[in-house]
Write a protein that binds this DNA or RNA. Structure first.
Lengths: 136, 136
DNA sequence: CCCACAAATGCGAATAGTTCTGATTTGCTT
DNA sequence: AAGCAAATCAGAACTATTCGCATTTGTGGG
């Protein structure tokens, strides 16, 4: 019973080979931001016989279970990352594609206030900054 | 030579029937936030024989010319709106789908600072608040 | 005012990303 | 180890969008 197995159990998900492998890939990947296709390729490269449909299904379940977060940058494929419980937003370099995480308590607070001012309650948000290196 | 014609000319675009009609639809629509499909239907309902491919092509040109803005809310189709030169972000009600515009100078300023702190220059951003009515 | 020619359009096919379907396999319960 | 629900596979389907190419449409020059 590995750590991954326990996480899956805790999330109420049956411990299956595809799910364990996908969880491992997400935990071990270097930049922590992978597309479904990236994961599919990683599986393919190692050994697996996991279909792309399963990758999507498993990622959706992981998201529902709070194990991973899904983000949509502009157009293009969604990216997935392990949810470590530390909320953050993203900055994407338009030249290199690099993704940088950041968190700003002030912005978070302002968002709440803005929603409240219109008679709403904030249930979520998506903030992506598109940036380029300063010296170009 | 209508107002729409002039706008198109100014943008360096040939004045064609599809372009004029699409511009009118965008200017006259009630909620100001339409999908390409919405526009296609509006054209179809009135009279036109404009293909969906043309709708997309024209919208892309309008965006490049600064006449309209395109936004991607989460997944689902992109929405387009006339660019009146007043920058704003969006709040989407998760229950009714209602879209509310807002602008907050403080958040804008903070975004610049955050990008700068990482050695980047802000070239754009996407901020969407997902909200629900306070009393539910 | 008309003509030529580039630019724009329509249609259908193609693409990208993602989800569904239905037959087969897998893993939990005993 | 058997049974059964849950999960998977492969491929088809779907949604949003773009492309290719034959045809049409504006526009500037004569």
């Amino acid at each position: 019973m590995t750590l991954e197995d326990q996480e899956l159990k805790k999330a109420g998900l049956k411990v299956t080979l595809p799910r364990v492998k996908i969880l491992q890939i997400l935990e071990n990947c270097s930049d922590r931001h992978m597309t479904a296709e990236d994961i599919y390729q990683a599986l393919r490269d190692s050994d697996g016989d996991v279909g792309i449909a399963t990758v999507y299904r498993v990622l959706t379940q992981f998201e529902a279970a709070g194990l991973v977060e899904r983000h949509n940058f502009d157009n293009g494929p969604a990216i997935y990352e392990i949810d470590r419980g530390e909320h953050h937003d993203h900055m994407v370099c338009t030249e290199t594609g690099k993704v940088i995480e950041f968190h700003d308590a002030e912005i978070e607070a302002l968002q709440e206030r803005i929603a409240a001012a219109q008679g709403y309650q904030l249930v979520g948000h998506s903030l992506v900054l598109y940036v380029k290196p300063k010296t170009s």
